[in-house]
Design a protein around this nucleic acid. Sequence first.
RNA 1: GUGGCCAUAGCUCAGCUGGUAGAGCGCCUGACUGUGGAUCAGGUGGUCGUGGGUUCGAAUCCCACUGGCCACCCCA
Length: 420
Amino acid sequence: MKYARIKGTNDIYGDEISYWYTIEESAKKVAKLYGYGEIRTPIIEPTELFIRSVGEETDIVQKEMYTFEDKGGRSITLRPEGTAPVVRAFIENSFVNKGFPQRYFYIGPMFRYERPQKGRQRQFHQVGFELFGSESPLADAEIIHLAVKLIKEIGLSKFKVVINSIGCEKCRPKYRDALKQYYAKHIDEVCDDCKRRYDTNILRLLDCKVDMEIANKAPKSTDYLCGECKEHYENLKKHLKMLDVEFEEDHKLVRGLDYYNRTVFEIRHELLGAQSAIAGGGRYDKLIEMMGGQSVPALGFAMGMERLIIAMKAEGVKIEPALVNHVYIAHVGDVVETALKIAEDLRRQNITVVMDVMDRGLRAQLKHADRIGALLTVIVGENELAEDIVIVKDMESGEDSRVDINFVVDFVLDKLNEIL
RNA sequence: GUGGCCAUAGCUCAGCUGGUAGAGCGCCUGACUGUGGAUCAGGUGGUCGUGGGUUCGAAUCCCACUGGCCACCCCA
């Protein structure tokens, strides 16, 4: 094999593509329903953008970024996530002057240098939603509600929403201290990874799969929230109940990106395997200011499209085929002109028409029509044309109809109406 | 970055303890000068992931690399 895909990337084509269409169309539909406009940002950004926003100490920055130097000596990075570029665009284009709130969504590829496994590639795709300007728990509820709506729209049902609040810069230090105290007592019982993380990232000890028992009994961040954070969290839960969004609270849910505060949430699918999160997000009230903009509260989430597709397949979600070939036009003898005209007449009625361009025999043409799943085949033949007639074949029943050439379009339209 | 399993035709795989490749499906052609799906017959198709080693001889044994799957780490 001369050339092969880069590890962790995929070619997407054929039947697969209909899953992608389903997700993209659902995302656009739901976005429209909630008043979110699409934003398309570059796939490449200055490396510094991600170091600053995602966090110097995170795994994404430490070891997962595709970074290279361009010919001008600038350090460029293929975006590993979608929020930072949107925030960059927000600041760069002075979105603050457009009034609040502002709602955006994006769809596109992200890149992380990781070992591929089920539900994880180096190039993967996310659809994300961001809401700028509101500090209200109503905004949190909207984002979570929207995420759930979208997942249902895609056809999934075996998922659950998990939420938590990790507080703000005022209350988080106190919680961190409490965790440290708790884990100091158990430091001999936990695994080696946890011992290491005790110093590097104490919050991460909570989602260790080895030491779940200890993590379960650990102090909860929600018990250490300051008055404002507590009220925010309580109101969010109230709103979610009003919206009939079922959720679980999980005090062990802490997310990996540094910029989150207060609300964090994840949506997990039960049929997925080790990488069970199909969506994740939270609030990032300090990020825009930290990145050099004004102080604007914001929040958002991203969904992994590949993971959604795995879930769709696992649940057996029925999808619309991306392409239905309504009519195949076969032609035999010196009749091309008529065949072309019929094809065009049909396309003008929004009918998908595929015409033979191989100059093969009728047999081969019908075989091809069958292979591409044509619903009808119009056979334009010399013999029939002498009587101003074409044959329309129903490819499922095999039944032939002799149709006056002046009524082909009407006949095909009727026939398709019957079938579809 | 770590670990386990794996790599033979377009696809799914067989090939036992070493003797220079096979099946099914697919594809093409014909039976059927102008009627697809079914059947039958014939045909096309692989430097056995790459490189090295052991051997008279390697798809088969050994090593390395690359890639795949799954898991860890972490995340969508």
